[in-house]
């Protein structure tokens, strides 16, 4: 919102109540008008809360090897013949309670997804703003790098960065750094989209009157970019971020499934599925089934939200 709008709002009638504002808001209205979207939002919310609250609601701590029930490894879920009432979804090969492991896995998947989107977004938006506003050789260099990176699929970039990080880090502290390595690898594989989008909008915005005016009153370029241009180019960034959250979660799960992500001592959903795949043929189906179900539900609901946000924010589709 520009400064003029704010002044108008101040001088007008008193602002409507929160409820009225929500009712009149296009975004909220379109959110509630679609049952699928509302359901997806609810499911995503439940999964996010479950992940965040994992330490509070999980019966056991899957990261603590002492809390594992080695004697009860590969116990089927509670509702199946041979199940144990202590383990709702059964146990894995190390006697971990699968329900707890999934809750913690959800937490890890969401955290890595969110952090890598934040990292990729921050780098991309910053570079896009600088490239678009400064122009010249800075612009060419950033956009050339973006072009080169864009020719490779993100998963491949993440794999390579992961491999290089493995080689650089000592074997002994690989497990402690796995989380950080994943965030950096996935984040760096995603910055290009943000940079290109933000650069494009910046090129348009920087010729607008309000930027010219800011320049005339002698504001520094940094202040113009951060305080004036940035708020006006953030719309599309939000959409990319939602879509990227789903992709980041898939990428993390894939890397962990391939065995280059999180170790078995600190399992994410992908790691659990990797473990479970070994037991597909011996009949212990629950180890692979429940984490897969959790992952698919998470990604699907986030994707539905992203689709809706993209359509809702796109004026051409209205």
């Amino acid at each position: 919102m520009s400064r003029a709008d704010v002044d108008l709002a101040k001088s007008g009638p008193p602002p409507p109540s929160l409820v009225a504002r929500l009712r009149d808001n296009d975004l909220v209205a379109s959110f509630l008008s679609s049952k699928t979207t509302a359901a997806a939002g609810l499911i995503a919310l439940i999964l996010i809360v479950a992940g965040l609250a994992a330490p509070l609601i999980a019966p056991t701590d899957p990261f603590n090897p002492a809390a594992n029930f080695l004697m009860d490894s590969l116990t089927p879920p509670r509702f199946v013949a041979g199940g144990d009432p202590r383990f709702l979804l059964g146990t894995d090969d190390q006697g971990r309670d699968l329900w707890s492991a999934i809750l913690y896995g959800l937490r890890i998947s969401l955290m890595i997804g969110a952090f890598s989107v934040l990292l990729g977004g921050a780098i991309g938006v910053a570079l896009g703003l600088i490239a678009g506003y400064a122009g010249g050789w800075i612009d060419s260099v950033v956009m050339r790098i973006a072009d080169v990176q864009l020719t490779f699929p993100a998963i491949l970039i993440a794999l390579l960065l992961d491999g290089v990080a493995h080689a650089l880090l000592q074997k002994s502290n690989r497990e402690e750094t796995a989380f950080l390595v994943l965030v950096v690898a996935i984040g760096l594989s995603f910055w290009v989209q943000y940079a290109r989008t933000v650069r494009g909008s910046t090129l348009v915005e920087k010729n607008r009157d309000y930027v010219q005016a800011a320049r005339l009153i002698g504001l520094s370029p940094a202040r113009i970019v951060v305080r004036h241009i940035l708020p006006n180019v953030m719309g599309p960034v939000l959409v990319i971020a939602t879509i990227n959250l789903a992709i980041a979660i898939i990428t993390e799960a894939t890397l962990s499934f391939l065995g280059v992500g999180l170790p078995a001592t600190e399992p994410s959903l992908g790691t659990l599925i990797r473990i479970g795949q070994n037991y597909l043929f011996s009949g212990e189906w629950w180890i692979v089934a429940f984490p897969s179900l959790g992952l698919a539900t998470l990604v699907l609901s986030v994707n539905l939200l992203g689709d809706w946000l993209r359509d809702a924010l796109n004026p051409r589709l209205k």
Binding site: A253, F257, I273, L280, S292, A296, V299, L300, N303
Partner: peptide, 22 residues
């Protein structure tokens, strides 16, 4: 198509293995 985009490749593979091999 939404499911195709949401299901990670490895999950599709595991699903197929479960159905057609196991």
């Amino acid at each position: 198509s939404l499911i195709g985009i949401s299901l990670p490749t490895f999950l599709t593979g595991i699903l197929l293995i479960t159905l057609f091999s196991v």
